[in-house]
């Protein structure tokens, strides 16, 4: 008898609970466009935030809701994913060239002497709000890996030998998380060439040439030789710092050979054969640093 009662009560309780759950579920049901689920499935599901939304669901929401989706782009999935989603939704796919994160610092340990030892929390944002860093360069990579923490794809690592963050271009999805994480604003999303070819200025120092030279042998001193040699008008010099516009650059590599400090980095291809004027190079490097220093001084006095 007891057993029977027990079974009965428990069954009744179970049914009652099920009923309540059903009613509640019906009452609070949220009507959602089923396409959102579908679009979310088509997205990579990394939830990295590279699109500007909190996660893939957010982007899916926006993709379904908006008529014009040209401003939305999933950097991880890239053009093919966006094409697929656009076709599914019957909208025009946004177009974006593939890019890759690039760390604009070449101040490896051997080129950039340490002037002190940092003993605080190993975090770039904490160290940089406190002081200049372990070298005399106030612009270079600190190497405590805030970008590594931010990367959801294991694509950026601090090389223990150089003390500088390096991007694995194969894994990088250009989500931009590291760009936001870097307190020194060193990381830039640059055009991605096939075979990971790249030419860029691996320096962000806005110091005067002489100051930069003292802090780091691999720094850009703003001599302007690269800009002169560039046939595509891709190089600009501002605040004593050369910048190569990756949209204009055609990877001709002329600037690489011109740079007296080696601040222009070439990746994925062989350098141009050196021309016989190598002998003249060191002589040219020195006077080239001068004009920049003067320009700065004038502006400071004003």
């Amino acid at each position: 008898m007891t057993v029977l009662f027990t079974i009965l009560t428990l069954s009744l309780l179970g049914i009652l609970a099920a009923l309540i759950l059903y009613v509640v579920a019906q009452k609070f049901k949220v009507e959602e466009d089923p396409r959102i689920d579908q679009v979310e499935k088509m997205l990579p599901g990394a939830n990295c935030g590279g699109c500007g939304f909190a996660g893939c669901r957010g982007l899916a929401d926006a993709l379904v809701a908006r008529d014009d989706i040209s401003a939305l782009f999933c950097p991880v999935g890239g053009a093919s994913t966006m094409e697929g989603i656009a076709t599914y939704l019957g909208k025009v796919a946004p177009k974006k060239e593939p890019t890759v994160a690039t760390v604009r610092c070449g101040g490896v340990c051997s080129k950039r002497p340490k002037t002190n030892e940092y003993n605080g929390t190993k975090s770039c944002v904490i160290a940089s709000s406190f002081y200049v860093g372990e070298s005399a360069c106030a612009f270079g990579c600190l190497g405590y890996g805030d970008c590594v923490e931010a990367c959801a794809f294991d694509a950026i690592h601090v090389n223990p030998e150089t003390g500088i963050a390096e991007v694995d271009a194969e894994k990088c999805t250009a989500c931009g998380a590291c760009v936001k994480a870097c307190p020194k604003n060193l990381i830039e999303l640059r055009k991605k060439w096939p075979k990971n070819r790249a030419v860029y200025v691996a320096c962000a120092s806005k110091d005067k040439g002489a100051v930069t030279m003292k802090a780091c042998k691999a720094g850009c001193i703003g001599c302007g030789k690269c800009a002169k040699v560039c046939a595509f008008d891709a190089i600009t010099i501002e605040n004593g710092l050369a910048y190569i516009d990756s949209q204009k650059c055609k990877l001709c590599r002329k600037c690489v050979n011109e740079c007296p400090t080696g601040a222009i980095v070439l990746k994925g291809m062989d350098p141009l054969p050196k021309e016989p004027k190598v002998v003249a190079k060191p002589a040219e490097a020195k006077p080239a640093a001068e004009p920049k220093a003067e320009v700065k001084k004038e502006s400071a006095n004003e």
Binding site: T115, N116, E117, Y118, N119, G120, F130, E134
Partner: peptide
């Protein structure tokens, strides 16, 4: 000397 730096 080696200078040691850390926030307070």
């Amino acid at each position: 000397n080696k200078f040691i730096a850390a926030p307070a």
